[in-house]
């Protein structure tokens, strides 16, 4: 456990004092720093919010944006929704898999990229879309696929 997590837990409980509402905000914040939520981290969060470890685990495992395995510095979500599929998202996914030498759901060995599918990202007018660390990249045709992997990113 990192010492400042205690402060973060207090802040989450101050903003969302009722029920277990502080849990998701705290998980988001800690994952933002750690990149994922290890079982040790989950146990720490449970301790900080006075919750049972299996309970926190059950919540973490429910949501697709909570990661229980280490992630790359850049998390690439390719939208595979219907409008994006009609616009060529499957080809985009295959291109990225080939380019990175990994399959959807995996992280490159150098820890740089994690490639994930996303369900509809609500940007269907800009199909196919992707997100890099939850920042939108619109109309990503095959030529633009390489650009997805480049450039500076926010964590």
């Amino acid at each position: 456990m990192k010492p400042h997590w205690e402060t973060w837990a207090k802040e989450a409980k101050t903003e969302f004092p009722k029920a277990n509402s502080a849990l998701l905000p705290l998980l988001h914040r800690i994952q933002g720093e750690e990149g994922y939520l290890s079982s040790d981290t989950i146990a720490d969060v449970a301790h900080l919010l006075d919750l049972a470890v299996p309970y926190v685990e059950s919540v973490v495992s429910f949501y697709s944006l909570f990661y229980q395995r280490p992630t790359g510095r850049r998390i690439i979500h390719v939208c595979t929704g219907l409008s994006c599929a009609l616009g060529g998202s499957d080809e985009l996914m295959h291109r990225l898999e080939a380019k990175l030498g990994i399959q959807e759901g995996q992280t490159t060995p150098d820890g740089e990229y994690t490639l994930l599918e996303a369900e509809c990202l609500a940007a269907c007018d800009k199909a196919p879309v992707a997100q890099v660390n939850l920042r939108y990249r619109e109309s990503v045709d095959l030529e633009a696929a390489d650009e997805l992997l480049k450039g500076e990113v926010e964590s």
Partner: peptide, 27 residues
């Protein structure tokens, strides 16, 4: 007014699942 971030779950658009999630539970 408070802004609360979900964490990836379509079902949380269903109002009662949303409330569960807002209370820090599975949706």
């Amino acid at each position: 007014i408070k802004v609360y971030r979900g964490a990836g779950a379509y079902i949380c658009g269903e109002e009662s699942a949303l409330l569960e999630s807002l209370e820090g539970k599975r949706g």
